[in-house]
């Protein structure tokens, strides 16, 4: 029997999970919005960030919240290398080849991690992991609350950057019309490099925070890639507000379905949402309808 208390708990943890999903999805939506490339290896970079956060704690005793400041620059650098090493060459190729490249990258990183770190589950056991905040009848674990807060801050910061800075205007210009932006004298290469740098860099914030609430293993990223797709498409590709809304919806739906049905059925719910969203509002849940 699902009581009100259980329902309230499901809502609270659903929203907290949703905020974490948003933290993963926001980088993906930025990269797609600007470059029109779907990065199937997005989750694998999250996996790298989680390992980096774990080793910062295990080897140097750095708290995950502080590790963000080390892992984020690292991930940004990886983003730049990824652009110059691989994605730049893939942009000229047909869609199917772009897909194959990022899928190959995802397989490659997963299995390199498997060779290097073995398949063991690792976790940062923090003292504060057992503490929680009471919200009405429901409880929210402290690390989850921190991750949710970080997610909201990050999305707000990215939104401000895109709205207010010249750099943001250039990114939005490229997202709206690649050719138009080039004609206005915007260098595509630099914008793409920065988009990937920031898009992958956001995972540097997510990874360490997530490593204290979720086991790290080589396959952890794949789980998030699929959910991030759902969120990004439901929210409208390249739309931050939509990504946040989509993420909260997915988190809520999953956790409420989990309260009623088995975990497997709850896991199918985001994909059902995706299909409904794609058929019903292919341009995204909150996109403005463009007059033609």
């Amino acid at each position: 029997m699902v009581t009100f208390d259980i329902f309230a708990q499901a809502v609270v943890s659903g929203l907290a999970n949703g905020a974490i999903y948003a933290l993963v999805a926001v980088g993906l939506t930025l990269v797609f919005g600007v470059m029109r490339i779907i990065n199937f290896a997005h989750g694998e970079f999250l996996m790298i960030a989680m390992y980096a956060g774990y080793f910062a704690w295990a080897l140097a005793g750095i708290d995950p919240v502080l590790a963000i400041f080390i892992v984020t620059p690292l991930l940004m650098l990886i983003g730049v290398l990824l652009y110059d090493g691989i994605i730049r060459r893939a942009l000229a190729a047909p869609e199917i080849n772009q897909m194959a490249v990022t899928l190959g990258l995802s397989l490659l990183l997963q299995n390199l991690a498997l060779m290097t770190f073995k398949g063991d589950n690792l976790l940062i056991p923090l003292a504060r992991a057992t503490e929680s905040i009471a919200i009405g009848p429901a409880l929210l674990q402290l690390p989850q609350a921190i991750a949710a807060l970080a997610s909201l801050l990050l999305i707000a910061a990215l939104w401000l950057v895109l709205r207010l800075t010249d750099f943001g205007i250039m990114m939005r210009a490229v997202a709206q019309s690649r050719d138009g932006a080039v004609l206005c004298g915007i260098g595509l290469g630099a914008v793409y490099r920065w988009a990937l740098c920031i898009g992958i860099g956001t995972l540097g914030i997510t990874g360490p925070l997530l490593a204290s609430t979720l086991y790290v293993n080589p396959h952890v990223g794949a789980l998030f890639t699929l959910k991030a797709f759902v969120i990004v498409i439901a929210g409208g590709l390249g739309n931050f507000g939509g990504a946040l809304l989509g993420a909260l919806l997915v988190g809520l739906a999953e956790s409420i379905a989990g309260a009623w049905f088995s975990a497997s059925i709850a896991a199918a719910v985001p994909f059902a949402l995706l299909i409904v969203a794609m058929l019903w509002r292919p341009e995204g849940l909150i996109a403005r309808r463009v007059a033609r």
């Binding site: 060459r89 190729a93 080849n97 190959g104 990258l105 490659l108």
Partner: peptide, 10 residues
């Protein structure tokens, strides 16, 4: 084979 895939696709 993932490396082969990336190389061939590019």
């Amino acid at each position: 084979y993932a490396s082969l895939l990336i190389g061939l696709a590019l």
